[in-house]
Design a protein around this nucleic acid. Structure first.
Length: 351
DNA sequence: TCTGGGGTCCTAGGACCC
DNA sequence: TCTGGGGTCCTAGGACCC
């Protein structure tokens, strides 16, 4: 008998904080509780910017993440609009993840407000409720917990657990719960793929699961095509890993409140953004090997160009010069509403 | 009054080399 | 007079996620 064998079956839990950014703001300003709260941009709904998180009260008015702040204001003018405060959310996120890591589980953080946990137990619902208790005690935040037999099903289960609940989705109830739902209910299928699948006559998860893998491969490529059918069955073999995340790139971008009509202004902004990226690269302690520039023209055409550097560097002057060199490959003309600069780190050869 | 910011991974075509 | 086929690197862009 292997004494190291963990007790109980293997379960994957997906933990997702409820209305995370709004909850952090409410936590330090209790008078906001119960009010529609919208966090995003500079907190000024007359400016360009997007909703990062809306409280449930604001969602009742049709406000949701990704929506333009101005649109949110039109839908819910009485909402409290707050600027995004990344330092506060990072701190809260760190506290939550520390609480999860104190539990007997492998913890994989996948975002500010989300993590997978691999646990061994015969009572996963009881474990999930313990997770919720621990998170609340440590941070006063509430979370939903999805229970699955793999990461995909756990992640999808959370959607049925929100807010604040627990839901189990496994091979047993996959068909019952998911088969008649639209394909974009799956994690990994967005708007574009939904439309392409519809062109093939595939609208539901059941139809995707039954689709011809060759047809999918022809339409979506040799890796993504077969994977789509696979997730239609709810299958996912990816492991939960506690490996610390190593960033592959750092980027910054800025949307201008007024479009830039003068290309000289675009050049000045690209250089400035490149210097901010350089500071991030220096803080990371690894040099960048590639520089990319993003330009979004009016009305909303986005183009990207990039260049491998002759030699990796974290020097601000060099990165700014490289960004300007990449910028020269763009066709000036239309006014510009956004510029971005991305630095990619050198790929580290496997040991 | 349209449509944020920060990431990751995949695909595909051309260059280049053998 | 004819130029195949495979591998890798570089680049642009698509798509998705939080």
């Amino acid at each position: 008998v292997a004494l190291t064998e963990p007790a109980g079956r293997r379960w994957i839990l997906h933990v997702d904080l409820d209305q995370f950014l709004a909850a952090v703001e409410i936590g330090r300003r209790p008078e906001l509780r119960g009010l529609p709260v919208v966090v995003g941009g500079a907190g000024d709904p007359t400016q360009r910017g997007a909703v990062a998180t809306a409280s449930y009260e604001a969602r009742a008015f049709g406000v949701h993440s990704g929506m333009a702040l101005r649109t949110a204001f039109r839908r819910c003018p009485q909402a409290v609009f707050l600027p995004s405060d990344p330092d506060a959310y990072n701190a809260a996120s760190d506290d939550v993840m520390a609480a999860l890591r104190r539990m007997p589980a492998v913890v994989e953080v996948i975002g500010w407000d989300e993590a997978f946990m691999e646990v061994h137990t015969d009572t996963p619902e009881a474990f999930a409720e313990d997770v919720q208790r621990q998170v609340r005690e440590a941070t006063d935040l509430s979370c939903a917990v999805g229970i699955g037999d793999n990461k995909l099903r756990a992640k999808l289960a959370t959607g049925f657990a929100k807010p604040g609940g627990v839901f189990r989705l496994t091979k047993q109830n996959w068909v019952e719960v998911m088969a008649e739902r639209p394909t974009n209910a799956l994690w990994g299928i967005g708007g574009r793929t939904t439309r392409k699948l519809a062109d093939l006559g595939i609208h539901t998860v059941r139809e995707l699961a039954a689709a011809d893998p060759k047809e999918l491969a022809a339409r979506f490529g040799p890796a993504i095509g077969p994977w789509l059918k696979w997730i239609g069955h709810g299958e996912d073999l990816s492991p939960v890993t506690a490996e610390p995340h190593v960033a592959k790139s750092r980027s910054r971008e800025v949307t201008f409140q007024q479009d830039l009509a003068d290309w000289a202004d675009v050049e000045r902004e690209v250089a400035a953004v490149a210097r901010r990226v350089a500071a991030d690269v220096q803080a990371d302690g690894r040099p960048a090997a590639r520089v990319g520039v993003k330009v979004r023209f009016v009305p909303f055409f986005t183009h990207l160009r990039s260049m491998k550097l002759l030699a990796p560097t974290d020097d601000a002057d060099e990165l700014a010069a490289a960004a300007l060199e990449v910028l020269r490959r763009f066709q000036p003309g239309r006014p510009v509403r956004l510029v971005g600069v991305r630095a990619e780190f050198a790929k580290r050869p496997p040991d």
